[in-house]
Design a binder for these strands. Sequence first.
DNA 1: ATATTTGGGACAGTCATGTTGACATATCTG
DNA 2: CAGATATGTCAACATGACTGTCCCAAATAT
Lengths: 172, 172
Amino acid sequence: MTVPNISAAATPLRVTPASPLFLREDEIRRGIELLYFGYTAMIRGADAILEAQGLGRAHHRALYFIARQPGLSVGELIGLLGITKQSLGRVLTDLQARELVEQAVGINDRRQRLLRLTTAGAALEARLFAELERSMARAYGEAGQQAVTGFWAVLMGLVPPEDRPRVEALQD
Amino acid sequence: MTVPNISAAATPLRVTPASPLFLREDEIRRGIELLYFGYTAMIRGADAILEAQGLGRAHHRALYFIARQPGLSVGELIGLLGITKQSLGRVLTDLQARELVEQAVGINDRRQRLLRLTTAGAALEARLFAELERSMARAYGEAGQQAVTGFWAVLMGLVPPEDRPRVEALQD
DNA sequence: ATATTTGGGACAGTCATGTTGACATATCTG
DNA sequence: CAGATATGTCAACATGACTGTCCCAAATAT
């Protein structure tokens, strides 16, 4: 293997640990900054692939959630993305014109349009995911299992309680 | 107090801990999703204040870093924000027109323009920060000190090594 | 001392992605 | 059948990025 010990980094962290006074302004600002730089760094990793396809980050987000929850409805996707149907409409039009996403009439409710990736769409999403995964797996491996649990816990704490079920529901 | 035990939550987490197989696709996707929802939730918290001022998120980011590193140069701010000088130019023009930010000629290098917040700018930034802090402190408190360390470690791992010094440098 | 590079500002046009508002159609539900 | 819901579409507009170009002043190199 090329990266034999990424999942077993002998020494995790190397990051200054939080002090018991971890609610001080400096510690809060550190979290804000790391969240900003970490998030943008990960997202940026997929830009090259997107640009080569003439797509943007909005298309990426839609592809991601359709891949994650095949058969979800337009309304559910709007809820996850937090955008209006008009904004999503343009994105879906693009993706369908490129035959990356297909629609089916809802089963219980024929007004719904259920979304899934085509074979080409799944292939593209896999390439995009591989880029995100490269960043995230490196970070997980460097930080260690226990750190990952903390990472999840703080991030879930940032999500307003009423939105948490929606995030948990992706984990099925 | 209304929130007496936020800094001493008896039971941290409540989030499913990472398994030893934390590099599996599901665990990676969980991190991607939590990072997305956590980041957007925190950022969104300041939107109401910004809108009341007729400012946007771009202005917020500039205010944040100028507050964090008073006297930084235009070039340094461009580096932190990762945008072009033309994009930053409009933002700084707006902030200076509102007398939230002021410039001074560089000391060692008179070509530079060193940026700092005015009194009004500092007051606004403090209000914006208080919103972010509310989210972050709640998340820190719910998750616990150890989780915060893990949160930082994973996020720093997401930042490409060559960019890490710039993030660390904010911590002075 | 002059030439070049660098930090910053300004103008113009464009793109990606979000918004509101209005209206249409099909389907579900009471 | 009446009203609510899910979705689609058209139009206008806002935000915040981008590229390209030109400019000035100050630092640095030759």
